[in-house]
Simulated scan of single mutants.
Amino acid sequence: MSAVLVEQPTPEIALVRLNRPEARNALDQETRGQLAEHFDRLGRSGEVRCIVLTGGERCFAAGADLRALAEAGAIEILLRQTHRLWQTIASCPKPIIAAVNGYAWGGGCELAMHADIIVAGEGASFCQPEVKVGIMPGAGGTQRLTRAVGKFQAMKMVLTGLPVSAAEALAMGLASEVVADAAVQARALELARHIAALPPLAIAQIKEVLLAGQDASLETALMLERKAFQLLFASSDQKEGMRAFLDKRPAVFHGH
């Protein structure tokens, strides 16, 4: 059975599901590789407009597979080039919605932070426990986390290795919204359908500029925003959207 399953509830929406329930969706090298392959393909698809990433109803992902790491040496870890697999997800141009039930711990928390929107169930928990086994986060758990929640909340999580609840994650900015556990996937798909009905060029420019601007000066980030704003006036979707608004009718966007 594949470690990662992909379904398309509609042609515009892809549902990527981790499928290692016996290991609480632990992220071994094969699973990371399959994730990278799927996100690369979906990112290049002309049809897919939004991706939902889930681990299922009980567990998002409970971290790295320690059995494959316990006796590894530094050069072995370096040569795995795991960061290249993570980068494929990070550079995916399509909006990604993480639907998080249960544990999002270690690499699972880092995987969720690769998404653009996080929908968490009330029973979900987020954690960077690497310090408890003598290492530290290695896939964004110190950097993406700090950018998401700020220095003091991030330091508390990575220095103690203690989990935070879904409610705490929402309050600190680590989740977009919290819903009942049974409603997580349905809510993520509802958001995906909403996004998929919007103009794809505008969605892609918004994601690209927002992420690029985070680490730029305000002046540079505003320039990126301004150029992308201007560029969208060359699109048919801009003409359709504004005409539809003025005509008081639903807009139909084609992505050009």
Rank of each mutant, 00 (worst) to 15 (best):
I13K: 00
L174C: 03
A175R: 07
E240L: 12
R32G: 12
L79M: 15
G55I: 04
E190T: 09
E22D: 09
S45Q: 03
L69Q: 05
G55N: 03
R58Q: 14
A74Y: 13
T142E: 00
F60Q: 02
L170N: 02
D215E: 10
A167G: 08
G55Y: 03
R32W: 14
K227N: 14
G56N: 05
A204N: 00
V100Y: 00
L170K: 04
E110F: 01
S45Y: 01
S236L: 13
R41T: 15
R32F: 12
Q8M: 13
R249F: 02
K248A: 13
A70V: 11
F126C: 06
G150V: 00
A104C: 04
K239F: 07
H114S: 13
E12M: 11
R243G: 14
V100F: 03
E37A: 10
P250M: 04
V252Y: 06
A72N: 01
R80E: 13
E122K: 14
L191Y: 09
A90S: 10
N25Y: 03
A167P: 05
E240F: 10
V209Q: 03
Q205Y: 13
E7I: 11
S91N: 14
L85R: 09
Q214C: 11
A26E: 15
G107H: 09
A169Q: 04
H114V: 15
N25C: 01
P250L: 07
N19Q: 09
L162M: 14
P11N: 01
A180G: 09
